[in-house]
Computed example of a mutant assay.
Amino acid sequence: MSVPRIFDMALRARRRDRAARNFDAHGFLYEAAAEEMLDRLMDVSRTFRDALVIGAPTDMLPIALRARGLTVQVADPGPAFAAARGGVAISEDEPLPFAPGSFDLILCCGTLESVNDVPGFLVQLREILRPDGLLLVAFVGAGSLPGLRAALLEGDGDRPAQRIHPQIDVRSAGDLLSRAGFAMPVADVQSLRVGYENMTGLTTDLRGMGGAQCLASAPPPLTRSALLRAMIRFAEGADPDGRVRERFEIVHMSGWRPDPSQPKAARRGSATVSLADALKGGGKTPDA
């Protein structure tokens, strides 16, 4: 079965390379997601040796993992980001350049939201993990950018175009991990609200973090009048202090590569487990 081509991988790489010039001024979403991933990793009671970081516009994750004694490899969809971290450039539509069982820990931060074949990519990640290896993923998910979405629809009027990427919701995220063969899959959401004086500030941040749209079927540019309508609509959502609070929903997922030492799954629906609880056993959690 062919995979729909929603995103243009070459365009995505160019967007990330353009963002590399001044990422630190706009990278708050990456920093928030990465800090949360590291906090969750602290709850894991097992020791890891070899890690892969996918999505590394800063040294934040590699430095933190190396400080814990791990050997770390880095990969990024943007060649400039990858080169700056001494890593390799990848396209998630192509086979990953790592041998099966190369890692016991993978952190994938801020790239899964623009992958065409998400189940296929997760399967690749499972294959390069060792048995009982851990995958942590964070990406911008469903419910994000409602203010910008409404403003762009207002600008387009009777002929709306798709200008914001389709987004994965947290329920689907857990199902995707299960489909890809991960054990004990868990997903939850980290919500952030960020204030902007105007729509231009928001779009500048999105471009600066490499998050500008990279759809394979690019929408037509907004006309000047359409852009003005969108900016007015966005401003109408301002709080009393004059700033619009835009929402970002960061979906976090975790899953383990199956191993015979892991507990058997409980009867479906017999228990609910938070992401933090699922991590604490280092892949070894008590039966529900």
Results as ranks from 00 to 15, higher is better:
Ser2Tyr: 12
Pro4Glu: 13
Asp8Ala: 08
Met9His: 10
Ala10Glu: 08
Arg12Asp: 06
Arg14Val: 14
Phe23Ile: 07
Ala25Thr: 15
Gly27Asp: 14
Phe28His: 12
Leu29Thr: 03
Glu31Gln: 15
Ala33Leu: 12
Ala33Thr: 04
Leu41Trp: 06
Val44Leu: 06
Thr47Met: 08
Arg49Cys: 13
Val53Cys: 13
Pro57Val: 09
Thr58Phe: 12
Leu65Tyr: 14
Leu65Phe: 14
Leu70Lys: 11
Ala80Thr: 14
Ala84Ser: 04
Ala89Met: 06
Ala89Phe: 01
Glu92Arg: 01
Pro100His: 11
Asp104Trp: 08
Asp104Gln: 10
Thr111Ile: 04
Glu113Cys: 01
Asn116Cys: 09
Asn116Arg: 12
Asp117Lys: 03
Asp117Asn: 11
Pro119Asp: 07
Gly120Ile: 11
Val123His: 05
Gln124Pro: 05
Leu125Pro: 07
Arg130Glu: 15
Asp132Phe: 04
Asp132Leu: 07
Ser144Trp: 08
Pro146Trp: 12
Gly147Ile: 02
Leu153Cys: 08
Gly157Tyr: 08
Arg163Tyr: 15
His165Leu: 10
Pro166Met: 13
Gln167Leu: 04
Gln167Lys: 06
Asp169Met: 01
Arg171Asn: 01
Ser172Gln: 10
Ala173Asp: 00
Ala173Lys: 00
Asp175Tyr: 00
Ser178Pro: 00
Ser178Phe: 05
Ser178Trp: 01
Ala180Asp: 04
Ala180Glu: 02
Met184Trp: 06
Pro185Ser: 13
Val186Arg: 15
Asp188Thr: 04
Val189Ile: 10
Gln190His: 14
Tyr196Thr: 00
Glu197Asn: 05
Met199Ser: 04
Thr203Trp: 12
Thr203Tyr: 10
Thr204Tyr: 02
Asp205Tyr: 11
Arg207His: 09
Arg207Gly: 05
Met209Leu: 11
Met209Tyr: 15
Gly210Cys: 07
Gln213Phe: 10
Gln213His: 15
Cys214Asn: 00
Leu215Arg: 00
Pro220Arg: 14
Pro221Asp: 11
Leu222Tyr: 13
Thr223Trp: 04
Ala226Lys: 02
Arg229Leu: 10
Ala230Ser: 03
Met231Trp: 15
Met231Ala: 14
Glu236Phe: 03
Glu236Ile: 05
Ala238Glu: 04
Asp239Asn: 13
Arg243Asn: 09
Val244Lys: 10
Arg247Lys: 13
Arg247Ile: 02
Phe248Lys: 01
Ile250Asp: 03
His252Tyr: 06
Gly255Ser: 01
Gly255Asp: 00
Pro263Asp: 01
Ala266Val: 12
Ala266Tyr: 05
Leu275Gln: 06
Ala278Trp: 05
Ala278Asp: 08
Gly281Leu: 09
Gly283His: 08
Lys284Ser: 11
Asp287Arg: 09
